[in-house]
Amino acid sequence: MSFPSFCFLILFLLATSNLWTSVSAAAPKQKKIKGQLAKGSSNIKRTILSSSASSSSFSSASSLASESRDSLWSTAGRRTGSLYCRVGIGFHLQIHPDGKVNGSHEANHLSILEIFAVSQGIVGIRGVFSNSFLAMSKKGKLHATPKFTDDCKFMERYQENSYNTYASATYRTEKTGRRWYVALNKRGKAKKGSSPRVKPQHISTHFLPRIKHIEPPELSFTVTVPEKKKTLHAPAKPKTVKPPPKKNSSPVRYRLKFRFG
């Protein structure tokens, strides 16, 4: 074998050995990268599963919240005042602690009512003094109850004459679909909503909300005006009063004149 061919063989062997060492060193790095990728994919799967679980829990919580909102009355849109019915001589709807509902000509503590919103177009009416809710039974009779139920929900509608009507949101006539309204007769007694005479066109079902609007306090401020410095004036000299001129007090001499005949 010649010397140049021998040198070429040695260089070839050295090159192949360096290539093999580089390949063997890169193999564990690739394994590490693959392991890191596997761990990242597992973490991504865990986050996806946790997000899906949280979304499911949020949806269940929202459903429970909606159910609780339907079962309980909302505190939004409260109005405190009285409901004036223009039937007869005019009556204010009042709720008694014993569950009785009627009208009074003069407003009193029993006629102070709180009208609050339950849902869109549906309101509830509570007596502030009696702490009872206005309700309508299955037979259309008005009464008061300490607990808020579906019987306490009424549909509030504005009429053309600026009066409101309150119809039961739960009960109505099944055959004709006529609604049952809150109404008072000429003597101030509560009418049955199921009566065919109780109609939204009659004045016995017209109520005027007399709401007490609380005016916000006026913003006022005080301005302090600096006091003017008093200038010290020199005391005025007393005026000298001139005495009146003295009269001539010298005696006057008279000469006697004698006349002879």
Rank of each mutant, 00 (worst) to 15 (best):
F3M: 05
C7D: 13
L9G: 08
L14M: 13
V23P: 03
A26H: 09
A26T: 08
Q30N: 13
Q30G: 12
K31C: 03
Q36N: 11
A38S: 13
G40C: 06
S42H: 13
R46T: 10
L49R: 12
A53M: 10
S55I: 06
S59T: 11
S60Q: 14
S63K: 06
S71D: 12
L72C: 08
L72T: 13
A76P: 00
A76G: 04
Y84N: 08
F91T: 01
H92Q: 06
G99W: 00
S104R: 14
E106W: 07
E106S: 11
L110I: 02
L113N: 05
R126N: 15
N131R: 09
S132I: 01
A135L: 02
S137T: 15
L142N: 01
A144Y: 01
D150Y: 05
C152H: 04
M155C: 09
N164H: 15
N164Y: 15
Y166W: 13
T170E: 14
T173Q: 14
T173H: 15
K175M: 05
R178K: 15
K192F: 10
S194N: 12
S195T: 03
Q201L: 00
T205Q: 04
H206K: 05
F207H: 05
L208Q: 03
P209I: 00
I214V: 08
P235T: 03
P243T: 01
P243E: 10
P243F: 04
S250A: 13
L256R: 06
K257M: 07
F258Q: 07
F258P: 14
